[in-house]
Design a protein around this nucleic acid. Structure first.
Length: 370
DNA sequence: TGCTCCCGCCATCCG
DNA sequence: CGGATGGCGGGAGCA
């Protein structure tokens, strides 16, 4: 479609320094969270999000699906989601845990796994009612969705004692297990990509952390959030790896901008619509290393129309400050919905964790301001 | 190289 | 039907 006239590629074979990292789902998720973590009740429009974050719509679907899986968002209507907030996570996880236990998520454990028959969620199901669709296979599309995969992945942690699961193991359990009867596609190698996607966004919320087994160096995921377990119905909160030690120096544990040598102003997209688009009055000036204040300019052409590649990369953590900052009000907004002390504790736990997280990302003191 | 996993084509699902 | 969703896997960054 309308292959852009010129502009697309300027200086061929020039040190373009693309930098894939700045386009990661994890970073995108962080920005998304920063952008909408407001008690504002206004619904979130997918187009709006895509535009504000400077990414294509397709990517928004990716993060929105996993965010919804853990309760942060709720689909309201077509093209529209409502922000539930971090405060909704404990409840969502608790439900996932119960659901997981009801199924056999706790039996995978050592040696061979126990496939998770799954089938899917709440209501309906029952023998094929209507006559439409189902020609190809009884497997609904939902079965392979990112959202369901996310929930199953989380259940793995919530319903067991382990807090470290290798990528390999997770793949085997979640996507058709090793060698089983079914001819199910076990080309896990291909499906594993989905796990990476999920892991990235869950990581950006500090629900999990990517590491690798002490011996073997094999990639693995460690659960950082709360854990269900025990039948007495009580929670046990894992002290998320002794939280951050707040190293005042530099060193950002998560985000890791790494030293992307001169990433700076990437693509010379020339969207002149910046005037109204990025209305985020970013004032943050930090971001020490690299990433000099990128100024969007360099746009000789005004191709108008296509603004799909917004300054997502450059801004990165931009306005994390403006949002949030008011944890108290945020907290009071959600706390009421928890009647049990357990959930309340969990909530507090998370708020603390995120407070730390945001301060790190923003590179400044624990938000608080007016 | 092998591990990660972004990108976007295009099958499906809704209105 | 046309637009909204979102599987899926090629293949390019990166370590």
């Amino acid at each position: 479609m309308t292959l852009s006239s010129s502009t697309i590629q300027e200086s061929p074979s020039r040190h373009r320094t693309y930098s894939r990292k700045q386009k990661s789902l994890g970073l995108l998720c962080s920005n998304f969270l920063s952008l909408y973590n407001r008690d504002g009740v206004e619904p979130i429009g997918l187009d709006d999000a895509a535009t504000r974050l400077g990414v294509e719509r397709r990517r928004i679907y990716d993060i929105v699906n996993v965010l919804e899986s853990v309760g942060v968002l709720a689909r309201k209507a077509k093209n529209q989601y409502s922000w539930k907030g971090f405060g909704a996570i404990p409840k969502a996880l608790e439900e996932l845990r119960e659901e997981g236990l009801r199924e056999n998520f706790h039996t995978f454990d050592s040696n061979n796994s126990a496939k998770i028959s799954d089938d899917e969620d709440e209501r309906f199901s029952n023998p094929n009612t209507g006559s439409q669709q189902d020609k190809s296979n009884p497997n609904n599309r939902r079965e392979k969705s990112l959202g369901l995969l996310t929930q199953n992945f989380v259940k793995l942690f919530l319903c067991s004692n382990v807090d470290l699961i290798s990528l390999e193991e997770a793949a085997r359990i979640l996507l058709g297990d090793g060698q089983s009867s079914s001819i199910m596609r076990n080309n896990s190698a291909a499906k594993v990509r989905r796990l990476y996607d999920i892991a990235n966004v869950l990581s950006s919320m500090n629900l999990i952390e990517k590491t690798n087994q002490t011996e073997n160096r094999k990639p693995a995921f460690r659960w950082l959030g709360m854990r269900g377990k025990s039948e007495n119905g009580s929670f046990s909160v894992l002290n998320l790896n002794e939280s951050k030690k707040r190293t005042f120096g530099t060193e950002i544990t998560n985000i890791s901008f790494k030293r992307n040598k001169m990433a700076s102003s990437v693509e010379g997209n020339s969207n002149q619509n910046t005037k109204m688009q990025w209305q985020m009055q970013v004032k943050h000036e930090s971001l020490e290393n690299g990433i000099e204040r990128s100024d969007f300019e360099k746009g000789p052409k005004q191709s108008s129309k296509s603004y799909q590649f917004g300054p997502f990369a450059p801004v990165s953590v931009q306005d994390t400050v403006r949002q949030v900052r008011d944890w108290e009000s945020l907290a009071s907004t959600y706390r009421p919905q928890y009647h049990s002390q357990a959930l309340r504790d969990l909530f507090a736990h998370y708020m603390e964790a995120w407070k730390t997280w945001y301060s790190e990302v923003a590179g400044k003191e624990p938000i608080q301001i007016s």
